[in-house]
Design a protein around this nucleic acid. Structure first.
Lengths: 98, 98
DNA sequence: TTATTATATGAACACACATTCATATTTCAA
DNA sequence: TTGAAATATGAATGTGTGTTCATATAATAA
């Protein structure tokens, strides 16, 4: 990969990384990494308030990192594609090597 | 990978992603991705002010994402390890797929 | 020494955004 | 309908940080 990508690409990379670089959102992404989960399930597993989880789910949705499916009163969230997992894995590996 | 990593891991992941999620720092990392470069070279290639580049190099250095070598009045920076490139690649690929 | 080049640093400002609290909306059951 | 459960939203606040400007430090040459 020769040279620095153009500004638009860099901008989009910055945006994606910004979305990913948040404690609550990281937990949410892991919470749905093995399949769709309802908001209630995510709230329980992440251990944050319902409001915060809902706000952050909206951020993830707006960035197209998650998909939704509605069923009755519940909404099920899942990761939009495999790149997200790949990103989490690369970062996880960097962090867990002494 | 079963379950959400513990809070400390998530914290460190957040930190790394935070460092990476900046327009100027992304450009700097690309500028030194093919080998060490002096601050002056980086300033020229990135197209930001000397002060800004120096400030952001300090951020990258503090996070151990870059290494330095001093030679006379010049300081040469290079990426600390291959994880950084791997991270950039994953993000780049995500962004450049329609 | 003095001058010049290369790099680093400190203060200040502006702006973005994560979180909380309160409330609204939706869906379904009784 | 009324009530309860699940989810979403809006406002307000506090904190973090990217950038600029001015200046400091370090190294070398003349």
């Amino acid at each position: 990969m020769p040279g620095i990508p153009n500004d638009q690409i860099i901008d989009e990379m910055e945006s994606l990384l910004n979305i990913a670089s948040d404690f609550t959102r990281l937990k949410i992404m892991y919470a749905i990494s093995e399949g769709e989960r309802s908001v209630g399930d995510i709230v329980a597993e992440v251990g944050a308030s319902q409001s915060l989880v809902s706000h952050q789910l909206k951020v993830l949705r707006k960035a197209n990192l998650v998909s939704t499916r509605k069923d009755g009163t519940r909404v099920y969230y899942s990761l939009a594609d495999d790149h997200v997992i790949a990103l989490l894995n690369v970062v996880y590996e960097h962090v867990t090597e002494e």
